[in-house]
Design a binder for these strands. Structure first.
Lengths: 341, 341
DNA sequence: ACTAAATTTTTACGCGCGTAAAGTATTTAG
DNA sequence: CTAAATACTTTACGCGCGTAAAAATTTAGT
């Protein structure tokens, strides 16, 4: 193979027998050239393993093929999983995705956005930190770069929002819990990082009211993104003070539930649906790890596939110029019944 | 602030009162200009919010400030955590890190490396997939790009290797288990993705021999990176067939242990050190999740900080021209005693 | 085969910055 | 205070590719 080292498009156009401007056109969009010339170029690409210099390409093009994917915390497997999905879809659509994490830090989120801007991305898929985000910086960024918000909504920000239907999530699982045992209390963080938490609390309250039960919310202290530890400590407190007024606990999210399960274990409180169990625990999110807790966690799962698909498609449409007015798409979750509730 | 929109270095040099070549020098290394001119430029940067065009910069520079960080599977919190560490260190050292994941797929690993090459990175921090990696492609890449291998060693590949001392890991925890109860059997995957697994098995065998015990290895079936599920299924089998010849199981890694714990739970086998427990389970890695299993998992933890520090420093030194002969640095782990063993 | 439409080739310029060379200004050392 | 060393300015070219315009070629339609 390696006939000779081609160092630029000029040389490549020579060996491929096609003029440079046409070759350039080809690399921007292979469909924009005649079938026969496309074949010739592709043969030469194969033969000489040539790739245009990405920096030179992006320098002049008004729009690059870069797409940024930004999540609040990549060490959370939920975000890692959704990011992986999105990344694949970008690749399939011919874009160059780049992954970023704010690592739970609002200042870093702004910095990431700043870096991203200098990459002149065609678009960005952004899951904001939420409450802690620098709202002004986000707005400014969205004005400059086509940005689709996912996971956690910030009203009217960006091109559109795609995420899960948190009302449906909580209503659905609350309904399930009420039908199969004692009505649940709601276990959450007092100052949640993510606005979805508020919707979930609200949905819980509404659902309980609808079903004719008295809601009870246990809000635990704790800042930051160490949800498991917050859930564990809060769980210990609640268990010690008997503040769960029912034998069923619906957690605001799976990571909190995981921490609560640990607390239960540490206090010898048996969790599950069996006759020897004294408490039922359910989560929300369908966290990748929820299958492997002890007991395996009953939860309501994001439709990862659908969310990432809709988000990616919406962004690509906007990039292609189909700008539609801002809208919010919320996708239903599916109940995952396991042993914990 | 926003006085006027500066669109290139020419305009910026005009408003800052410093000539363009000097400004260029400044952006490549602020220390390379006189203190007084540096102050002037920095004032202008502040005032006009100017940033040089990153594409134009990288086009001509022999070496960019880009650093690639490649892990086998970003959805594994262990890799996410180590990647986060490395990313921060790159940032602190003035580099532009970019995260990549092979998502457990050797073909994708090659593709990632190909993409990376076109970014002309100053260096790359690579945790190879391991057994499945395209060895030839890796070697070719390492010849072209300064690459430091971490986590999983491939002999003599790249600039150097930095990772954990798997022999010490397994010896240490085997020793602990022997001293505190029945000697452990070793629970692993038959065809592990990662070469560290072989070292750990070997270390287990050696340690047991040294202590005068008969080793016993249980190798379970399963391909891919779904370790928890492999551990769970293999655990069910082993439990059903009573193939653990001892009440103590040392798992090759934490994710496998997490799966085994789930299997134990599902079979009503109580795990831990208490009098009512019938099995002890230990893992290896210090997985971020290991604190929250039920029972919390006794394990031996990577020294994330030390590994990422040594890896990053070694790469930066090499980039700066201090090329030393290939060497392997293996860092000891710390025993984390919890309730599972 | 002839015309119109679609593609490709030629030619040429520009993008924003790196960088080299030679000259001028400033700082440092003795 | 002077000479040497250092830092800066001016000038100029090149990087690899996008892209526009006009000319030449190929293709499609009847």
């Amino acid at each position: 193979m390696a006939e000779k080292k081609i160092k630029n498009m000029e040389e490549f156009s020579a060996v491929s027998g096609i003029s440079r401007p046409t070759v350039s056109k080809f690399f921007n969009n292979p469909d924009s050239v005649r079938q026969s010339t496309r074949a010739k170029i592709e043969a030469a690409v194969e033969k000489y393993d040539y790739r245009p210099n990405i920096f030179a390409m992006n320098q002049n093009r008004k729009l690059t093929k870069n797409v940024g994917i930004v999540v609040p915390l990549l060490t959370d497997p939920y975000f890692a999983e959704i990011a992986r999905n999105l990344e694949q879809r970008c690749l399939d659509a011919g874009y160059r995705p780049t992954l970023f994490s704010a690592h739970g830090d609002p200042a870093l989120e702004v910095e990431v956005l700043d870096n991203l801007r200098s990459m002149k991305p065609a678009g960005v898929l952004l899951a904001p930190l939420g409450r802690a985000s620098d709202r002004v910086a986000l707005e400014k960024f969205c004005r400059d770069v086509p940005t689709l918000i996912f996971d956690s909504s910030v009203d009217q920000l960006g091109l559109a929002f795609v995420g899960s239907d948190n009302f449906q999530f909580t209503s659905h699982i609350t309904d399930y819990l009420c039908r199969t045992g004692e009505p649940p209390c709601f276990f959450e963080m007092k100052t949640p990082a993510n606005p979805n938490a508020h919707r979930r609390r609200q949905a819980y309250l509404t659902a309980m009211e609808t079903f004719g039960y008295t809601p009870q919310v246990i809000s635990v202290e704790g800042e930051g993104w160490g949800f498991e530890e917050i859930g564990r400590l809060g769980g210990h407190d609640a268990l010690a003070n008997r503040s769960f007024g029912t034998n069923t606990v619906l957690c605001s999210n799976d990571r909190l539930a995981i921490g609560l399960l640990t607390a239960c274990y540490e206090r010898n409180v048996r969790v599950g649906r069996g006759p020897d169990c004294t408490i039922r625990v359910a989560g929300q999110d369908g966290h990748p790890h929820s299958r492997y807790t002890c007991p395996p966690l009953t939860t309501i799962s994001h439709d990862y596939d659908a969310v990432s698909k809709r988000a990616a498609e919406a962004l690509f449409e906007a990039i292609d110029g189909d700008v539609s007015p801002w809208k919010s798409t919320r996708i239903e979750g599916k109940l995952v019944l396991r042993d914990s509730a």
